[in-house]
């Protein structure tokens, strides 16, 4: 296959970036998208240029490190797929492919396609945990948890923290990410004691990081590589409302 790449190049956070065009030959349909970029980088290095910086690690769709907009869609054209799981067979010979970083106010560009998503960590640090110190826990089977609850918690916990939801949202909102974290813990009995303080603190931090609010576009759900549904946002809003209004949730 032959393709024409248009890739965002930016030296660092303070530099101005631009799209750079490059013709690429000899691409096999069986290559993954990142293997295509590996090959492009190999060529660039041999020519004496500087390779395209992009984040990646596990290359099997679980670490959430890979992050790019491909033809305007986070992680590219396939549903429920991370960039690293995307294969060139999803493209046609002669296609033009535009690659940009995940853009959002809260995700500054570090270099080329690499962005800084540490805001997600800070949101979790604000309350996305259960305060169980190591040691002294009761037997794991001493508390029954209905299968539907633990399955629902797992649906939410499948979030890989990639940030596709933010990059796809016209408001740069992190609501799906935050709702997934809260939904994971709120559906388990262990998560109840801190449920409402967690909701309050995580939302406050989310706002402080400069993420926008949700106005029901649902682009996040459409681009989520783990198919996390927006219903978790509804659940989260209810918890936040309760946390802010009901004395029982203070």
């Amino acid at each position: 296959m032959k393709i024409t790449l248009h890739v965002w190049r930016q030296k660092d956070v303070n530099s101005v970036g631009k799209m750079q065009r490059r013709e690429v030959n000899d691409i096999s349909q069986d290559m993954s998208f990142l293997e295509m970029l590996d090959k492009v980088n190999e060529d660039i290095i041999i020519e004496g240029g500087e390779p395209i910086a992009f984040d990646h690690d596990c290359r099997e769709g679980i670490c959430g490190m890979c992050s790019m907009m491909i033809n305007g869609r986070a992680h590219g054209p396939d549903d429920g797929t991370t960039t690293c799981q995307l294969h060139m067979r999803s493209f046609q010979d002669g296609d033009a492919i535009h690659i940009e970083p995940f853009r959002a106010r809260a995700f500054p560009v570090v270099r080329d396609l690499v962005v800084d998503r540490s805001s997600f960590d800070r949101i979790v640090q604000a309350g996305g945990f259960i305060s169980a110190n190591t040691g002294g826990c009761q037997d794991a089977n001493s508390q029954l948890i209905p299968k539907i609850d633990s399955d629902l918690a797992m649906d939410a916990a499948a979030c890989i923290g990639c940030g596709a939801c933010v990059a796809s949202c016209p408001n740069g909102s992190a609501m799906l990410f935050v709702a997934a974290k809260m939904g994971h813990l709120a559906n388990l009995p262990q998560g109840q004691p801190e449920r409402y303080t967690r909701a309050r603190n995580m939302i406050t931090q989310m706002d402080a990081e400069g993420f926008g609010a949700c106005s029901n576009h649902y682009e996040c759900e459409a681009s989520c590589p783990k198919d996390i549904p927006v219903t978790f946002i509804g659940d989260m809003n209810r918890d936040v409302l309760k946390a802010n209004t009901c004395s029982s949730a203070k």
């Binding site: 259960i130 209905p146 918690a153």
Partner: peptide, 22 residues
Amino acid sequence: NSIIDQCVAQGVPFARDYGGLL
């Protein structure tokens, strides 16, 4: 065994059967 207890306390959603046991 303590590891499993610890993880459940932290909210790790291990698979369960219909009775709610691990």
